[in-house]
């Protein structure tokens, strides 16, 4: 009975699916801009966290680079973009001293919300290291209003919120170019900017970086590529600030687990030696049953010692 019902139900599903599979398909219009899209790529020399062989097992952050990236963020990006999940105190993680962080927080162009201790009224005051980076706009409506209806996204997690994050940020920031001559006229969007790394090719953010825009404290030449790579690295850190801690712990865990697994393999082989050997003993032998003390640590027997 079950089989008859099953075969009938199966026949119904198969019939409906065959109908669907045979149904003609609408022609999907070919996107004439398809060929203009470019794949995100790493800067020359790769990233510090790629590590040897690019496996990503060992490489950490390059604090010099992160500090350069922070400078680009502070002088360029932070005019429009927030970093809402990052606190000033976190900057100690990229090599700034406690005193430096205090100054950075205090001198940040935006102040943080506060309450006047005398009147109880809402006010603002300079940030302290414990504060998060202040928001640029109070809400999304304000952000849209100030930016031609395209709200600048928060950058805290940008390196994880896009496929191939750091490569994407690097490629996008250094990837602005003139519209190709053969680009279809009717697809040009005048109010936006052409960028082959952006998902729609037309991005609201104008080109931000140009050679020499920032003066690096460590003397690195501030080419567009350099700044794009540095700010991408910085945003990789803001998205994944515990990466170094994670990898370090991971190496320790793996060493332990490899040791543990090797030992348990040897133990397994030893415990089973008599079962494997008894294969030649013929049917009926109970595989030796190993009463050489192995049973002594059986859980049931050990329990009543406690």
């Amino acid at each position: 009975m079950v089989r008859i019902v099953g075969i009938l139900a199966g026949a119904v599903f198969v019939f409906v699916l065959v109908l669907a599979a045979l149904a003609p398909r609408e022609d999907v219009p070919v996107d004439p801009t398809e060929e203009f899209h470019a794949h995100a790529h790493a800067p020359e020399g790769g990233w510090s966290w790629d590590g040897p062989l690019g496996l990503g097992v060992f490489g950490g952050y390059d604090n010099q680079q992160l500090q350069r990236g922070f400078k680009v963020f502070r002088e360029v990006c932070s005019a429009c973009h927030s970093l809402r999940y990052v606190s000033f105190r976190n900057l100690e993680g990229i090599g700034f001293s406690e005193a430096e962080v205090k100054v950075i927080a205090e001198e940040w162009p935006l102040e943080v919300a506060a309450t006047n201790p005398d009147t109880g009224e809402a006010t603002t005051e300079p940030a302290i290291p414990a504060d998060r980076f202040p928001l640029v706009y109070p809400n999304e409506i304000a952000a849209r209003a100030a930016n031609n209806n395209a709200a600048p996204p928060d950058l805290s997690l940008m390196a994880k919120a896009r496929a191939d994050g750091a490569n994407y940020i690097y490629s996008l920031m250094s990837g602005y170019q003139p519209v190709p001559a053969d680009f279809p006229e009717d697809r040009v969007q005048e109010s936006l900017h052409y960028n082959p790394y952006f998902h729609s090719l037309w991005i609201a953010m104008p080109p931000q970086l140009s050679d020499g825009l920032v003066t690096y404290d460590d003397g690195t030449e501030a080419t567009t590529e350099q700044m794009a790579a540095d700010v991408a690295a910085f945003l990789h850190w803001t998205a994944e600030p515990k990466m170094v801690e994670r990898k370090t712990a991971g190496i320790g865990v793996l060493i332990f687990l490899l040791l543990f697994t090797s030992l348990s393999y040897v133990a397994y082989k030893r415990v089973w030696a008599d079962v494997k050997a008894s294969k030649v003993g013929g049917p009926g032998t109970r595989g030796g049953r190993a009463d050489k003390g192995i049973h002594a640590d059986a859980p049931g027997e050990g329990d009543h010692e406690a």
């Binding site: 687990l257 543990f260 697994t261 348990s264 049917p283 049953r289 049973h295």
Partner: peptide, 23 residues
């Protein structure tokens, strides 16, 4: 002749399998 006890035979084998899984 067909069976062996869970402990120690399969506690040992499962511990090894667990190690591979955790890695």
């Amino acid at each position: 002749a067909d069976t062996i006890p869970f402990h120690p035979y399969f506690t040992a084998k499962d511990t090894f399998g667990l190690g591979v899984f955790l890695i």
